[in-house]
Design a binder for these strands. Sequence first.
DNA 1: GTTAACGCGGATAACTGATATCCGCGATTA
DNA 2: TAATCGCGGATATCAGTTATCCGCGTTAAC
Lengths: 157, 157
Amino acid sequence: MKLSGGVEWAVHCCVVLSQAEGPVPAQRLAEFHGISRTYLAKHLQQLSRAGLVSSTEGRVGGYALTRPGGEITLLDVVLAIEGREQAFRCTEIRQNGPLPASPQACKKACGVARAMHAAEQAWRESLKGVTIADLAVSVEQDAGPDTFVRVREWLGT
Amino acid sequence: MKLSGGVEWAVHCCVVLSQAEGPVPAQRLAEFHGISRTYLAKHLQQLSRAGLVSSTEGRVGGYALTRPGGEITLLDVVLAIEGREQAFRCTEIRQNGPLPASPQACKKACGVARAMHAAEQAWRESLKGVTIADLAVSVEQDAGPDTFVRVREWLGT
DNA sequence: GTTAACGCGGATAACTGATATCCGCGATTA
DNA sequence: TAATCGCGGATATCAGTTATCCGCGTTAAC
């Protein structure tokens, strides 16, 4: 089980965007994080399709958050990049073999699937409790109070 | 993000083993669940290496749980199959680019990684709260009180 | 009006990991 | 001695991730 590396990129980009003043081009976000421009573009397009960021085309285009950082959760970003499917996928093996479960019993999900999905729900709830704004605060605490001032400066360059 | 299909197989096998009277061969477990014998064998070997099941070789060999079902959690099985690595892997992109985080600040994990790992911890805690015995009970409730009697009967065939 | 910077979608390719099978080996028992 | 079993290695296939490139339309500056 592995999360796409794009999740990390997307989250960090959202934190930067939450502190930017205007639209930030993908090129700029890629440079800032030292990552591939073309591949990052794909992930930003996913964020755009999910409605988390808006894109402006043309000469001075780029990406911006559609909502304040406090209204975008980590879960929003993760689902936008990873998709909304559950990590655990029940293949209903209880219906196989010499003693298959009755169609009657299979109306509800099996105990294994229920437990796995409950765990995944706990994961999602935890991610839901963290916003981009929260992460921005933690970055500021770790890297110093002038961090985003310098980020904005560099973005304006 | 997707969990290995082997997790589902392994969990269901553990439930069956918790109700078996002697060692159950991989062949038998595969037949019972209508799945590939050779591939299931690989997963059972992983459970064996993790210490969740013991294997007896030879003519009347097979697999058995090393502990009562109540002492084996869903998390034990998932980690045995999926490995113990976190799904989210921080690549420290904060250290890249024109404004890299200071080595000082990087002594602790970044806020993004902390939040992702906290969510994963919540997932693990949830899995830790469910035992094989719990799952056996839920199977019995869903499929009827004589279910495991018939399972043992078929295994003995 | 032309040019340059930008986002968008499609095509493509390399690489990785999951899925799956087969084989020979040693162990055990009928 | 033969049949049944687990074990590990080699191998093949397939899907998903990672990544790049291209042409297209859009927009602003010159």
